[in-house]
Design a protein around this nucleic acid. Structure first.
Lengths: 151, 151
DNA sequence: CGAATTTATATCGCGCACGATATAAATAAG
DNA sequence: CTTATTTATATCGTGCGCGATATAAATTCG
């Protein structure tokens, strides 16, 4: 192996690590969220759905899927679990019966207050300041959107 | 709500988005890897194990778990699937029968060549240059390790 | 209008990922 | 040496997450 190949290999290795760092950062993040969310009986993906609904109530499965970048095959069972715990209601749109409108119940709305301190706990755990967080966030969004626009 | 609270809410919202950006970036990354890995019949977590073994053959389940930050409850079934496809061999350490040593088969070694071009494909898809990748990688590793050192 | 196509959600199968627990080997303690 | 504890892996149950497919409503096209 010549120097050229070796340098190329190094580059590829570093790039490889980026994907692994994101992959393992997701798991780490989940570990921090888990005990906080356990108190209010939510998983992280369920929490994301609730955050989406707290921001804007009465969204269709499709809208939630577009926002969270998840398929109906992921959302439908998740939403059913949230419905079982009576945090959300699922009902067909009377105007377009193909759509299912997901809305908050009183129980779902009351969860918001209980979840209020979670973001600050996560920020503390990250040990990053706001500027770092904003910059990192922007870069990751850019990376993500680059990856998503392959086709 | 006063200005103070509003500013605080904004901060928390941005921080919230960081976690979501990492979460969705992981999914985006998986989408790019999937067609590339499909050609050689691996999933992304399986690919990570193979990369680990290509770097250093004959590692225990525990060593792989430490490296990839995964539990035995995740690795054992995954390694069994890799064994079924005859990419790896699993055998108890004769010196310490609690340990299971995972080693590459000829088939597993031959996969490395077939996987050679994957890292460059991912780098291209990211549309990032090496310097960006290195910096982003370092930040994410720092974030991840901060999150992992809560206890 | 009526058939073909598109759109929105749901179902199914498979592979993670982890917490809780089990099992068995190795080590420590008495 | 025997018992207790620790260590390493495996098993089980639950919840994602997605591709492939199904179903039914809405829209388009002839």
């Amino acid at each position: 192996m010549n120097a050229m190949n070796k340098a190329a290999k190094e580059k590829l290795k570093i790039e490889n690590l980026l994907c692994f760092s994101i992959y393992s950062a997701t798991h780490a993040m989940n570990q921090v969220y888990k005990p906080l969310l356990k108190k209010i009986g939510l998983t992280y993906p369920q929490y994301l759905v609730m955050v989406a609904l707290w921001n804007e109530d009465e969204q269709t499965v499709g809208q939630l899927g577009d926002l969270l970048i998840l398929e109906s095959s992921t959302l439908t069972p998740l939403l059913k679990r949230l419905e079982t715990r009576s945090h959300v209601k699922r009902q067909r749109d009377p105007i377009d019966e193909r759509k299912v409108i997901v809305s908050l119940t009183q129980s779902g709305r009351s969860l918001q207050t209980k979840a209020d301190d979670i973001p600050s706990c996560i920020l503390n755990a990250s040990k990053f300041n706001i500027d770092q967080v904003i910059k990192l966030h922007e870069q990751i969004i850019e990376l993500r959107d680059n990856l998503l626009t392959i086709g």
